[in-house]
Amino acid sequence: MDEKRAMYEARAMSPPRALRRSRPVATVLFCLVVLYTFWQLQPFASHPYHMDVAAVLGDPLDEAIADLVPLEAHIISKCPDTRDALRQLILPVMQRVHDRVNFTLSYIGHPTANDGVECKHGPEECMGNIIELCARDLYPDPKISLGFVMCLTREYEDIPDRTLIEDCALEHAIDFQALNECATKDDGAYGLSLLRNSIQRSSEVR
């Protein structure tokens, strides 16, 4: 009688078998929910706009371009909105998805007669756009070209001042002479064609 009573009490104190099996699953799910919530609530790392973009974006991309998702921004060089967009939108996004996107900066303007272009802030902005496009042409890795563009936009009013360009080129290991040769190649026709094609691209996606 006592043995039966002891067995009954032991069974009564033990949780049902299904409940015991479900406990590890429930624990794992709880941990996943906590981790996911923490990840969602964690803010972007705060970086000054003169930061080392290469350090943030990490190693070069290994995937083929065809396997990456297109990510494109349309800007003009001599504009505070461009500076703010690069700091507050583009860089935080690139920090998180740089290894999954094919990033491109395209420029806004208007084609003119005789294969020319017109820029919102005049010829100086056109030259600034060309210099930034040449940086991308010479250094397709966005860690370099995007870093260079962000450096220039710190002092966008001075674009295309030679000293500013030289300083930013030095900061991001860009060959200033190669930049100059790109912008002036074929009496400027090559750089102008880069800008015209970029403006055409922007007009097509509007």
Rank of each mutant, 00 (worst) to 15 (best):
K4I: 07
K4P: 00
K4R: 11
A6G: 00
A6C: 02
E9W: 11
R17K: 12
A18W: 08
R20Y: 04
R20S: 09
P24Q: 05
V25G: 15
V25C: 15
L29H: 11
L32K: 05
L35A: 12
T37C: 13
T37S: 14
F38H: 01
Q42N: 12
P43C: 00
P48Q: 07
P48K: 07
H50L: 10
M51F: 09
D52C: 06
D52V: 03
A55P: 10
L57C: 07
D62G: 11
E63Y: 07
I65Q: 15
A66E: 12
L68G: 09
V69R: 14
L71Y: 15
L71N: 14
H74P: 13
S77M: 13
D81N: 11
R87C: 04
R87L: 00
Q88A: 08
L89D: 07
L89N: 04
L91Y: 13
M94H: 00
M94L: 11
H98E: 09
R100F: 05
R100Q: 09
R100I: 01
V101C: 09
F103S: 03
S106C: 00
H110D: 12
N114K: 12
D115T: 06
G116I: 03
G116P: 02
V117R: 06
E124N: 13
M127Y: 11
G128D: 00
I130D: 10
R136T: 11
D137C: 03
L138K: 11
Y139E: 14
Y139W: 12
Y139G: 13
P142I: 01
P142Y: 04
S145D: 13
L146P: 02
G147D: 03
F148R: 00
M150P: 08
C151P: 10
T153N: 06
R154D: 14
E155W: 01
E157K: 12
T163I: 06
E166D: 07
D167F: 01
C168H: 02
L170M: 05
L170H: 11
E171T: 06
A173M: 02
D175L: 00
Q177C: 10
A178R: 14
L179K: 00
L179H: 00
C182M: 05
A183R: 09
T184L: 10
T184Y: 05
K185D: 08
Y190E: 08
S193F: 07
L195G: 13
R196I: 11
Q200A: 14
S203A: 14
